[in-house]
Design a protein around this nucleic acid. Sequence first.
DNA 1: GCGCTATTTTGAACGCGCTCGAAACCGTCC
DNA 2: GGACGGTTTCGAGCGCGTTCAAAATAGCGC
Lengths: 235, 235
Amino acid sequence: MLPERTSSKARRTRATIIDAALALFREKGFEETTMREVADRAGLAVGAAYYHFRTKDEILLALYEGTIDNSLERARFKSAKSADFADRVRDALDFRLAQLRPYKDFLGPLAGHALIPGSPLSPFAQETEEIRMRELALFEEIIHGSSLKVALEFKSHLPRFLWLYQMSVISFWLRDQSPSQERTERLIGLSLSLIMKLFAVTRVPVLRQANGLILALLQLAAGPDASAERRVASA
Amino acid sequence: MLPERTSSKARRTRATIIDAALALFREKGFEETTMREVADRAGLAVGAAYYHFRTKDEILLALYEGTIDNSLERARFKSAKSADFADRVRDALDFRLAQLRPYKDFLGPLAGHALIPGSPLSPFAQETEEIRMRELALFEEIIHGSSLKVALEFKSHLPRFLWLYQMSVISFWLRDQSPSQERTERLIGLSLSLIMKLFAVTRVPVLRQANGLILALLQLAAGPDASAERRVASA
DNA sequence: GCGCTATTTTGAACGCGCTCGAAACCGTCC
DNA sequence: GGACGGTTTCGAGCGCGTTCAAAATAGCGC
């Protein structure tokens, strides 16, 4: 609608606040950091911070959103290297985790809100729609240029499936305390192999009878309004 | 260790508080209910309430825990009716959801803490261990008396798998706004059919090569300490 | 410069979950 | 009965996220 919804001043101040918050979150964690502290470090009063962000959570969300941008570029770059589907997905996941690495310790709360049905931080909520769509677009691209062989009827559900898969991996990773997160590495390796095997199976004639079931499930999971999905698909 | 860790007075007061909280949560929701209100309705001061429950969340947890007891009895009763695995699981799920029904509207926050790695309300946390073990024991029973046919190597992982499955269903159900939750009904029907099909596949010789993968994944998911699992298995 | 509106900042104040030292209550042994 | 130790209750108070009316500042046409 509007060409610029925010003045450049406001944008700069937002950035200052985000920087201050990021530094503090890293130093002391999310819960332990006070909004007064964030405002202080940004050189403002609390009220000003609340003028730019409706809640403390929203700062966290802005932080998370900020990590997505270069992810897309990088994915485009990497994608050129290999046409193998599994390789491409693995690259995307590895890169995403590497990107989130610095935030690992305080990103827990975000995942925490994930399951609260009404929460604005839920990855299914309206407020996070833009982020979600950007992530879906990324997976679109990964699939698009790849040599993936899968039963046709699943093609349209793949991005959403991969997105959910990514969320699961991230959630596992956040909890993973093993040295250099080697358990997550193994999880990715194993689950990707399994997924590829299952994909192959969907094309075996004898087993195709299960496809109807799977498809129905995917549609159920997509929800009563698949509008967001369609929008992504047509972009 | 101790024969009685709490006096009968304390137990009665706890019950009063839980009753008051339940009523208020139903009237106004969890977040909207004040600890001062809970204490008021229970005829106490805030401090007293906090003597019996360390946090507001803990009341919610006690509430949830309270719904499990009769679930076990009921499951035993129902189990006698059919030996078919899918029927038994479906019965258990249906009953569990019916049980949670009255709490549906304010149980969101509980699910919300589910993913926070450090949160005491996480279903993976130490504090909820007892609840988790009771639920696992329930699934043990469901499996035990049934005519389930599955590749042997998976038997020991089944309870944990079913528990996770139940958690997923509950989380879907909490978000399900469809009339009389018919979407959840469909989800259960479809996913159970699919699970049964997959179980069957694990015994097909040609496809057994995937079993190693699945097993490794299950072990990864079980975590570095599978002690809780072993304890349940030997009980 | 001057006024005028819209944007941005301020900090006191609110209501919340939760803490804590002191008081009240209880059982029990003399 | 009284003294004493443990349990339970009390409520003022703390620090937090958040709100809001009022003040400061920016931007702009003259």
